[in-house]
Design a protein around this nucleic acid. Structure first.
Lengths: 221, 221, 221, 221
DNA sequence: AATGAATGAGACTTCATTCAT
DNA sequence: AATGAATGAAGTCTCATTCAT
C-alpha cells in the first residue's frame, strides 16, 4: 500500500494521480499499463511515483482500493466491511431477491459510466486474471467482492440461498455470470431497445436466482 | 495464418515450436508472451520465427488453431465444424443433458493436464479479453466455442433449451459459468476428496441446466 | 555484373526478375530496397539470387544496365556507346539545339511512364547520391549519361557549345537542371494546363541553351 | 520537435549530441543513419535518446534545425525568417547580383568544412529526396531554402529577376544548379589551382544570372 | 542446377526503476 | 521534499547472406 506520505498530499493532487492511473489500468490492464504514460498524463516527474509508492503494483493496489471506496460512497453505502455488514443485516427473506436484483442492475448501470473508478471496477475481473498481475492483498480483493459475498452469506442465514455448495464457489460463479452477461449486453447496447434490455436484465437475474435458490440443499462446509 | 512453409516443416519440429509457444502464451497471455523466450526455449535462431510466421499475432493464431485441432482429436471427435455438426445432430432430446454433462466434465478434466494445448485452451478465455490482444479471425474463434454453440443450437431444435434469449447470450454466459467453476475447483483440487468433487461437478451441471432449461420462453431473435 | 549463368536463363524469367527488381529499386533506392521483397514478388527462392548474382549491388547494377538498354531500344536508338556516337555525328550546327530540345522533352515524357526501366532511370540520379550506394562501374554510369555527354561533345565540335568550361562540368550541371525541372513539373502536372506546361518546357530548354551557349569562351582542358 | 527537456540540457552536452547526430545523418542519410551508432558515439545509454526525442525523425528534424541556426549565426546573419527578410530588403538593383554571387561563393566555401552542421546542410538536398525520408515540417524546410527564395523574391521586386516563371521553379532549379556545381567542384578541389577555381565559380555565377535574368518576361502566377 | 531453411546481427523503441542532487 | 536525468535490458521485427542438400 502507498507509503504514508501519499496521505499527506493535497487531496486534489492525490485524486488526480489516482484518476489518471485508474484510466490507464482500466484501459491496458496491469502489465499493459505504462507507468511512464501515467506520469506524463498526470504531469508528474519520474521520481515522484517511487517517492509515494513502492512500485507499479503498489500504485495499482492503491488505485484499486480508492476505486472501491469511491464506489461505496457513490451508492450511499458506508465504506468498509463492517458498515456493509450492517446494511446487509437489515435485509429479510422477502426483500432478499430484490436486493440482489438491485445489485445486478447496478452492475450494468456502471457499464455506461466513464468515471475512472467505475471503469477500473469494470476492468478488474479481467485484470485479476492476468498471469503477471500483482498479488493483491486479501483486503482489496475482499472489498471488491465484499458486497456480493456478504449478500449471499446473509441470504443463507435467511434460508433463501442454497447451502449445499461452498459460499466461495457461489460467489465466484455468480460474479462470472454477472460479468459475462454485462459484457455481452454492453457490446450490443446501441442495437437494443428498452424492451429487449429489460428482458435480458430480468433473465440474467432469474438465472442468478435459479442458480442460487435454496431449493438445493446438502453441502456442509 | 502461418506461411505455407510451416506446413512443410518436419512434423516433430513443427510440433515442438507449437508446444513451446503454447506454453508461453498460456503462461503469459498474448502481450506478456516473449517471442525471444519462445525462440530461446525452442532452440531457434532470432530470425527464424519470421520465416514461418507473419508476426507474433500470426504465431499465436497458428498455435491456438493447432491447440483446437489437438483437442478435437483427443476427444475422438473429428476436427472441423462440419464433423462436429454431424455428431451434434445425432443427439435426441433424451440424451441432450447427458451430452452437456459430458462436455462439462471434460472441461474440468482438461484442467489437470499440463499438455500445452490444454493449458492454452484453458488460458484462452482470459487471453481473449486482453485489451491489446490479437484480433482473431472468426475461424479460430468459432472453432474454440463451436462445440458449445452447436450443442445449444441443437438443444433448441430439440425443444430442450430455452428460446427466450439470444443463443449468443446463452453461449457466453454458459461458458463463463463453466470456466469460473473450473477455476474455483482446480485451485482447490488437492484439498478435495472425490465425493466433494463429484458433488461440485454435478452442482455446476445442474446450474447450467437450470439456466438453460426450456421452461423459459418468448424471446424472438 | 551478373554471373554468366544469368544469360542462360529463359528470357521471360530473366526479364521478370529485372522488372521486379527495377520497381523495387525505383521505389526504395538502393539501400532501402529489400532483397527479400524482390525475391518474394518475383516468386523466387532465396538462394537463386546468389546463384545468379554476386550480391545486392550486382543485382542493382545488372538491373540498371538492362534499364539503360531498354531505354535505348525504346527510343529507336541502337544500344551501346558506339552506335550512339554515330547518331550524334549526323547532327549539324543547325539541328543541334533542336536535338537538345528533343532530348529534354523526352526526359519529361518519361516521367509519366510506369514502365520499370523508365521509373528506374528516373530514380537513378537520386540513387546515385546515396551514401551507401553501390560503387558503379564506369560502364553503366557512362551509359546512363552517355547521351547527354556525347551530345554536348558534338556540340562543342560544331562550335555551338561553350568550351570555356570542362565538358564534365557542363554535363553534370545540365543534368541537374534537367532533373530538378522535371521534378518540379511532375509534382504539379495535374494542376497545369497544356499552355503552362509548354511554357515551362520551353523555358527550361532556353535556360539550358543560355547556359551552354558558345558565346562563352576560353577554358582550356 | 525535441521534447522541451532537451533545451534544459547543459549546452555542451546538447551540442555534442547534435554534432554526433549531424555527422551520422550527413554520412548515411536519414534511413541509413543508425540510432544505435549515434548513441554509442555520443557515449549515451540506449534509452536516453527517447527521453529527449520523440523518435528518430524527431532527432533528425531537431538536428537539422540546429544546423540551420548555426549556419545563420556563422554567416553573421540573424536567425529566423524575419531577420533574413530585413537584410534582403536592404538590397537594391545594383547590389543584387553581387549578393547572389556572395551567396553562391559561400555555398562553395561550406563544402570544404567538416563542421557537422555544414556537412548536414550539404547532405540535406540528398536526404530530402529519400523515398522513406522523414516528413519535414514546413518550418525547417522553409528555413533551409529561405535565403535563396527571399533573395529571388526581392530580385523580382527590384525588376532584375525574370517574372515569366513561377518563383518556386526558379528556386528549385537554381538550387539544383548550385548544388551540382558544388559537388563537381569539390570532388576535384585538390587537382585545381586557384585560377581554375575562380573561373569555375564565376562561370557558375554567370549561369545562374543568365538563367534568372529579367530579360525573360510574361509568366503570370 | 537450384533450393529454401536457417542465421545472427542489428534495426527502432518502450520499459520500470534508480539515484545524485 | 522532490526532482528529472539516466539506465540498460528487453521488446518485436527485418536484413543480406550462407550452405547443406
Amino acid at each position: 500500500m502507498a507509503l504514508p506520505r501519499f496521505q499527506n498530499l493535497h487531496s486534489d493532487r492525490r485524486e488526480h494521480i489516482l484518476e489518471v492511473a485508474g484510466h490507464e489500468f482500466a484501459d491496458h490492464g496491469f502489465a499493459g499499463a505504462s507507468v511512464n504514460r501515467i506520469l506524463d498524463r498526470a504531469g508528474l516527474s519520474k521520481g515522484v511515483l517511487y517517492y509515494y509508492f513502492e512500485d507499479k503494483a503498489d500504485l495499482f493496489e492503491t488505485t484499486l482500493e480508492a476505486a472501491v471506496r469511491h464506489l461505496f460512497e457513490e451508492r450511499g453505502l458506508p465504506g468498509g466491511r463492517e458498515a456493509l455488514g450492517h446494511w446487509v443485516e437489515t435485509l429479510d427473506a422477502d426483500g432478499f431477491w430484490d436486493a440482489l436484483r438491485e445489485m445486478s442492475r447496478q452492475s450494468l448501470g456502471l457499464l455506461r459510466s466513464d468515471l475512472w473508478y467505475v471503469r477500473l471496477a469494470r476492468a478488474y475481473p479481467r485484470i485479476r486474471q492476468e498471469p503477471a498481475g500483482p498479488t493483491l492483498t486479501g483486503n482489496v480483493e475482499g472489498l471488491g467482492r465484499g458486497s456480493l459475498e456478504a449478500l449471499l452469506s446473509r441470504g443463507r442465514a435467511l434460508g433463501v440461498v442454497r447451502s449445499d455448495l461452498p459460499l466461495d464457489f457461489l460467489v465466484e460463479v455468480s460474479a462470472a455470470l454477472d460479468h459475462a452477461g454485462d459484457r455481452w449486453i454492453v457490446e450490443r447496447l446501441d442495437a437494443m431497445d428498452d424492451g429487449e434490455l429489460a428482458a435480458l436484465m430480468d433473465a440474467r437475474m432469474d438465472m442468478l436466482r435459479d442458480m442460487l435458490d435454496a431449493a438445493h440443499v446438502g453441502w456442509e462446509e
